[in-house]
Design a protein around this nucleic acid. Sequence first.
DNA 1: ACTTCACATAAGTGTCTGCTTATCTGTGGC
DNA 2: GCCACAGATAAGCAGACACTTATGTGAAGT
Lengths: 106, 106
Amino acid sequence: MAVVEDDIFRALADPTRRAIFEKLAGGSMNASALREGMAISQPAMSQHLAVLRGAGLVREARQDRFVNYDVDPAGVALIAQWLAKYRAYWPARIDALKVVLKEMDQ
Amino acid sequence: MAVVEDDIFRALADPTRRAIFEKLAGGSMNASALREGMAISQPAMSQHLAVLRGAGLVREARQDRFVNYDVDPAGVALIAQWLAKYRAYWPARIDALKVVLKEMDQ
DNA sequence: ACTTCACATAAGTGTCTGCTTATCTGTGGC
DNA sequence: GCCACAGATAAGCAGACACTTATGTGAAGT
């Protein structure tokens, strides 16, 4: 379990990987599409995606000649669970999460 | 702003640092107390605390001859804000955060 | 002033990371 | 079968990271 968190935080520690993750959060994409406008070589992208996949933050699905990637909700949920341990330290004025909760209640 | 996230995730990428952070979440402590039962040298602890402090996850306060450390809510809030961007991917069945929201509404 | 204790900083070192170029694998079209 | 293209893997390398030992700093007690 702690090993999982290790993979997750390690994956997110790299700014390029966070950018890839953020891009995927906007919609599933193949590796080539992700690469557009990112000044990153093809092998580098492939390696980053492998790390994100290993951390459970991203899923892959072969689709004809392309490989489609998308955010894995399981990974996001793990971060949420980890963060929930420290809810005692969320200042009340931070209401970004309050908004989220309201949305989830609907 | 992205630099801040970089510091945060990089700080949390190290398991030893996460353990320190978790220990501090249970109550403020000085560096020596933190070191108890952790098989870690004094300089290593000092360096880890410096990284956590640099990331805004931990605060320090001199108190006579000791330096007291505690969790910085601002850092935790930043993670919450970052995570909030991906709320679309939190599976509904993950209710750890729902519980949190309920508590916040009270 | 001197010692003691808590902690920070300096300097050095092995290991890990992220990048590169080169090459392999796999799938579809002809 | 062959070629073209998407992507993965291999190998090598520069820089970053976490640790170590040694030393510095700063505050309290005598």
